[in-house]
Design a protein around this nucleic acid. Structure first.
Lengths: 136, 136
DNA sequence: TTCATTGCAAAGTTTTTGCATCTTT
DNA sequence: AAAGATGCAAAAACTTTGCAATGAA
């Protein structure tokens, strides 16, 4: 009922988009995905990126990552549990392998809040920006 | 240069909006602010809420809180450092006093990332929803 | 050949801005 | 009375959707 089927054909656009998402070590915005995928698929329309992202979300192949800066980014779903670091200098978002959350899921907090999941974002300066910040 | 001055007059709308924001123990969306403030200021326009929120942001009286659900909320700026808990049942966002981040600011992470700030969101079930979830 | 997929443009959403009017000072 | 503030409606920014054309199978 309703709607055509979708996600069945291997197209250059889809290939390019998936490759871009899998090639980074940090989540990307739709704009970033389009810019990078456009190199391989020149006339790539922004609507196609949005549609493909939605397709990949539905298929659990990627996850949305919404950081406190309000931008929605996307990352491959097959990554291990990890968190993110956003550089104040270049605004790039990096993956930080591992987890630094001391409260295990299932814990009941003092107020009676039962913790099932968590999200952590670190902000600061990335190695590159640290290097270029400090004068010679 | 440019733009009128702003934030100089005490109006019913402003009063209502500020009271609403200061009366909660969790950050509120623009919609929530308007709904609650409308009780005191009936014809409150959404544009006024947006303008007032911006005004308060500029004046450092409130902060934006963007959680991983993508909704932008606002909270009083005079609160102590704390984090947030979003209930999967009722979608309400609560303040969690205190901090559970083991990495001090100023720490350099293994990859060379220098941490200056952080943001934590916990997800789970709030006390009320825990109570109503479990049958008698 | 069929029908999912694409690009473009139109339509939704959400937030911002222009403007005449209203209200605080 | 002067000028900031408000409400409405138009505009801008970001996503989604309709549709004819394209191209994978």
């Amino acid at each position: 009922m309703g709607g055509k089927q979708v996600g069945q054909r291997r197209t250059a656009q889809r290939e390019a988009i998936m490759n871009v998402i899998n090639a980074t070590d940090g989540p990307l915005t739709v704009e970033q995905i389009r810019d990078r995928a456009s190199e391989k698929s020149p006339n790539l329309g922004i609507a196609t990126v949005y549609r493909t992202v939605k397709l990949l979300l539905d298929g659990e192949q990627i996850h949305a990552v919404i950081l406190p800066d309000g931008e929605t980014r996307y990352e491959a779903a097959d990554l291990d549990h990890h968190h993110h670091f956003r550089c104040h200098g270049c605004n790039v978002v990096f993956d930080l392998p591992g987890c630094m959350m001391p409260i295990p899921e299932g814990t009941a907090l003092p107020g009676g809040f039962c913790v099932e999941d968590h999200e952590i974002t670190l902000f600061g300066t990335c190695p590159e920006c640290t290097a270029s910040d400090s004068p010679a």
